[in-house]
Amino acid sequence: MWAEHDLSRLIACPTCDTLTVSDGVAEGMRLTCARCHRVLVSPRRHAVAVVLILAAASVGLAVGAAALPFLTFHRFGLTRETTLLGAVLRFEGALLVLSATVLALAILLPVARLLLTVWVLLPLVIGFKPWPGAARAFRLAEALRPWAMAEIFAVGAGVTLLKASDLARVDIGPAFWMLTGLVVLVWAQESILCRAGIWEALER
């Protein structure tokens, strides 16, 4: 039988329930599940600080990408600027549901995730005790992961751009580049962050 203090050395793979004993993993190494090959622990030097900086920068990019001009149309001598927020909120009547869905999945949930990440990581980086609700905040941020679709929205915006440029002369606005940057930063955060390390730090 396992004693209480031994259990903290164990990891149960969330995918396949296989137990792995973890006696510390060196920086730059990875501990994977022997059965399903899921990465369990993957510590990187300064990972928490880097992820915190990327998350904070991403919040700025997300707000800018939503509110600054995304496209400028030139047609029939007229010029019209569109922002993503304006495009998403344009519908009325029954299509308001579409506005709300796109707004939530493409902008609100990604920003909420980033803010939760900053809430959890900031005290860890500056050496404070975790802020209240940090564990719940991190659990929520992880649970929101599949529903935060900023990168999918970015691809959709790219397709829209291609389609629109068939129909009129289109200039790309700053929001397009901010959206592209956001995708890269979110992807970088996902690949750098070692979740096991955060959980351990929150438990200490």
Binding site: F70, L71, F73, T82, L84, G86, A87, V88, R90, F91, L98, S99, T101, V102, L105, A106, M149, I152, F153, V155, G156, A157, V159, T160, K163, A164, L167
Partner: peptide
């Protein structure tokens, strides 16, 4: 969901 995003964006920008 990319389909939904494209239709929504296309309809409101074009």
């Amino acid at each position: 969901m990319v389909d939904v995003f494209v239709v929504a964006l296309l309809a409101s920008t074009v």
